[in-house]
Design a protein around this nucleic acid. Structure first.
Lengths: 110, 110
DNA sequence: GTATTTATCATACAAAGTCGGAAAACTCCT
DNA sequence: AGGAGTTTTCCGACTTTGTATGATAAATAC
């Protein structure tokens, strides 16, 4: 692509899922949440790679979860949406709403 | 990427703009419409390439405009969103709404 | 015909997203 | 302690999507 400085679709979805999950926002869980909500398969790789990129861009921050009572498995990397991430989310929502505005009916009809 | 079978962000934007413009939906015009609505630069290439790809996928159909009274320039290729394109648009809207649901307040606050 | 305008096409490139295997870090059991 | 089973993250090769810009085409105006 070569887009710089706006939220892609998958990025947006991940940000929203992270926002919803709060302290439970880590890779695998995010993947499941997404799959459940949008009703299509999501691969692990997509999630982790996208998470990495968004962290680089400063839209999320992450830290390794310490406590892990009664479960196996590698420690979770918990993700949090930063203020920048929030701002991006607001922008992209606005853009989308501007584009959709007034078209809902036409769509339901056609 | 390697996604197959769901609308990307730019694709969605173009479909919506095309829907709105109706019989005026052709490359340059779509580009302007988009720029006006989302408030950022859009290159010609993005538009034409994405249009081509969506036509291959069957989400839009196009035909060369015949009439061209009083203006110079190459004939316009008018684009129309197909039933498949509409369906995709509906699906992606639903997915997005499901993800956004209940998060608007959290976002405005943060 | 030549210039001007409006628009599409070509194409090389950058970035985003997918996939599946493999390694890491932990718990449980014996 | 050692091995088995679990949960999760990481790796890397690949495909698709999106960007940028120069070239080309078709029409009008003079």
């Amino acid at each position: 692509m070569g887009r710089q400085g706006y939220v892609g679709e998958f990025e947006q979805m991940l940000l929203l899922a992270a926002l919803r999950l709060g302290g439970e926002a880590y890779g695998v869980r995010l993947m499941e949440e997404l799959e459940g909500r949008i009703g299509r398969r999501v691969s692990r790789g997509s999630v982790y790679v996208t998470l990495d990129r968004m962290e680089t861009k400063g839209w999320i921050a992450s830290e390794i979860s310490q406590s892990s009572p009664h479960r196996g498995g590698r420690p979770r990397r918990i993700v949090r949406v930063t203020a920048e991430g929030m701002a991006e989310l607001r922008k992209s929502r606005l853009a989308l709403m501007t584009l959709w505005d007034g078209l809902e009916e036409a769509l339901d009809a056609g």
